[in-house]
């Protein structure tokens, strides 16, 4: 690890200013915000991230969970995962988010990790994590050993010939299904970014994961109200029973009216290079009866175009079962 300078701004404005001069906010940024540190400290120890300056944003407040007029919720970027998952508002309105967060990591990590930090959680690809290897995400243009190598955990959707790294988050899958908005304060003022536009597919520039620019500080996330009677569920499948990243997961929000599906959101984790929203699956569900066959058809649609890697072909079928079963659970509650 390199030595670094620690900066402790007293306000959002100061924090933004501290990072605004950085040439990038993406991989390898010389100036980094740090909150819980569960991801960044890990990567700094591995020399995967080598910031010269750390901007400690822990004293900026930004940690509240509040109801919004109209039935939505606002979650501060520094709200800890534990607090969000256990917040009465979240448990009551968005069980999918609470369940997703609680399915990830451990109590110790969730006590540190923040909402904003989790939005920027990095991939678990073993090649990305080890500087002895080439990696287009860490070292653009160096190559991708994962494509011919150890890729069991990696993505089958949204991949490119340059990168097949999975987005490992659980929280972000739920936020995707909930159509959350990421609020950012940057050098040029405040922006609201729909989560669907927040992440960038790897394409030819896998080092760029989000639309964040230098100085952009995530201040909070808002989630709109769901239709009355909508149910939500998160289902995560993995090798061991806890403390492991998803092989496949599904965040589902549904509403069933008169036996027919009147509202559907389907997002998947563990299979995509970004938290994966499937409009195809949603389209396949709308207006259909809540039957296992229809759920399976939606799951087939969700994985349409999936590109298995050498070791993870099973993920395609696993994700289908995950979506199918999550839909069964979500509608059973209804």
């Amino acid at each position: 690890m390199h030595t670094f300078e620690l900066i402790t701004p007293a306000s959002v404005t100061e924090a933004v200013k501290a990072q605004a001069g950085s040439p990038t906010a993406q991989q390898g940024a010389p100036v980094r915000f740090i909150a819980g540190g569960t991801n960044l400290v890990d990567f700094m120890k591995l020399n995967v991230e080598t910031p010269r300056q750390l901007v400690d944003i822990n004293r900026l407040g930004l940690d509240r969970v509040e109801a919004l007029p109209g039935g939505g919720v606002k979650i501060g970027a520094l709200a800890r995962n534990t607090d969000v998952a256990q917040h009465e508002l979240i448990k009551a309105r968005y069980p999918v988010l609470s369940e997703a967060i609680l399915s990830g990591a451990t109590v110790q990590l969730r006590n540190l990790a923040t909402t904003g930090g989790n939005l920027l959680q990095k991939t678990r690809c073993v090649y990305y994590r080890d500087t002895a290897f080439a990696c287009n995400k860490r070292n653009p243009g160096s190559g991708c050993p994962a494509i011919e190598g150890h890729n069991r955990m990696l993505a089958v959707l949204g991949t490119s010939e340059h990168c097949i790294a999975t987005n490992p988050s659980d929280q972000n899958v739920a936020l995707t299904a909930l159509e959350a908005t990421v609020h950012v304060t940057g050098a040029k003022g405040e922006r609201a970014i729909p989560i669907a536009e927040f992440y960038v597919l790897p394409g030819a520039t896998p080092e760029r994961e989000t639309v964040l620019a230098p100085g952009d500080l995530i201040t909070h996330v808002t989630i709109p109200a769901l239709p009355d009677g909508a149910k939500s569920v998160y289902l995560k499948l993995r090798d061991r029973a806890s403390y492991e990243f998803a092989l496949a997961s599904a965040a589902i929000v549904t509403q069933v009216s008169g036996g027919r599906i009147s509202f559907a959101r389907v997002a998947m984790g563990g299979v995509g290079t970004v938290p994966w929203r499937s409009h195809e699956a949603e389209k396949a569900l709308l207006g259909k009866a809540a039957t296992r066959e229809n759920f399976r058809a939606a799951a087939e649609a969700a994985l349409h175009g999936a590109k298995p890697q050498t070791q993870n072909g099973f993920k395609v079928e696993l994700a289908k079962r995950c979506v199918t079963h999550a839909l069964t659970l979500a509608t059973k509650q209804a």
Binding site: R124, V126, D239, R240, A241, S242, Y243, E244, F245
Partner: peptide, 11 residues
């Protein structure tokens, strides 16, 4: 220990 997984309490 995240990539070579051993049994945790829940297992």
């Amino acid at each position: 220990l995240a990539d070579y997984i051993v049994a945790v309490n829940a297992d």
